[in-house]
């Protein structure tokens, strides 16, 4: 029994049943497949999180975002500037208590270098309804190249708890033709 010492004292010399051995081999191979699948996707897949990150002071990140906002704001909505930066450019999205600032307007099928950072606590960038979720830290500037491929209006929900106003922290990204 499993509750008593093994009945064969030299238990490590007992042979392993064929069915157990078969399952161990299958499970091991499946593990290898899953492992190499992640590596394969870095080459063949189109959805990989960037490894490009810089340390940054919150005020510096805010300045850079403000420079972009000053240059490319096209209109205002509910007090938020709507910014339409040129394709291929560096785009900044500020996470702070409790808003995503500013609203971005991007062109479909164009690439942008999206910078994400927080000015205070941790936040969660949750782009809906595509359901892309990335953690946002203060002091870290995560740069990811994104290429929106469906036009429409997207919500940015905060999905890392960030205090009492957490559930009111919603931003917006437009993708236009």
């Amino acid at each position: 029994m499993a509750l008593t010492p093994p009945s064969e004292r030299i238990w490590w010399k007992e042979p392993i049943a064929k069915i157990e051995l078969t399952w161990i081999l299958i499970a091991f191979c499946w593990g290898l497949i899953m492992f190499f699948m992640m590596i394969y996707w870095h080459g063949a897949g189109e959805q990989n999180l960037s490894n490009e990150t810089y340390r940054i002071k919150p005020e510096v990140f805010a300045e850079r975002a403000q420079a972009m906002i000053d240059e490319y704001t096209v209109r205002e909505e509910e007090g938020f500037p709507v910014v339409r930066p040129p394709p291929g450019s560096d785009v900044y999205l500020i996470a702070r208590l409790w808003m995503w600032w500013p609203i971005l307007e991007l062109e479909k099928d164009q690439s942008y270098r999206l910078h994400l950072s927080s000015l205070d606590w941790q936040h969660g960038f949750s782009l809906q309804p595509v359901n892309i979720n990335v953690q946002v830290h203060p002091g870290y500037d995560l740069v990811m190249t994104i290429k929106p491929d469906v036009a429409g209006e997207y919500g940015v929900v905060c999905n890392e708890y960030c205090g009492l106003g957490h559930h009111n922290m919603v931003g917006k990204i437009y993708v236009v033709e």
Binding site: M38, Q47, N131, I132, N133, Q135, N159
Partner: peptide, 10 residues
């Protein structure tokens, strides 16, 4: 690693 993108913190 990659699939976590569509699940993290949901």
């Amino acid at each position: 690693e990659q699939i976590n993108l569509i699940m993290h913190n949901t």
